[in-house]
Amino acid sequence: MRLDLLLRISSKIFLPFIILFAFYVQFHGDFGPGGGFQAGVIFAAGIILYTIIFGIKKAQKDFPETIFNYMVPLGVLIFTVTGLISLSKGFNFLDYDALAHYPKHGQHIGIIAIELGVFVTVIGSMVSIFYAFVARGKK
């Protein structure tokens, strides 16, 4: 158990940067490369790294599985509700011009909202699938 000291310490140093990079890719997606999907996968990779190094029990204690299970439909909900808000204001479905007085602002808010939806769903599915795989145990 003590032999993987180097791995554990270095992954502890790396993990905040991985998560930070995921958020950078997420919120910088409209200026540089990236977006919800990429950010979600990077975030999930961070949590998977944590699980590999520290074991499934500790990981599930620190990042409870139920959160990720709820995140899968939550992202779809965020995406759809964004579309429905613009629909309720008399615009087309997913027409973000409706979200603010100034169309470009509306576009910005809308893109950030749906990227958030993608982000949440992708993290949820990746980590849930990984947890479900690992938790099966060897038969």
Binding site: G29, D30, G32, P33, G35, Q107, I111, E115
Partner: peptide, 15 residues
């Protein structure tokens, strides 16, 4: 001019 987003990939995908 329509979306105000510099990354065209994002504007096509999201908007």
């Amino acid at each position: 001019s329509e979306t105000g987003v510099p990354n065209v990939v994002t504007s096509v995908l999201a908007s």
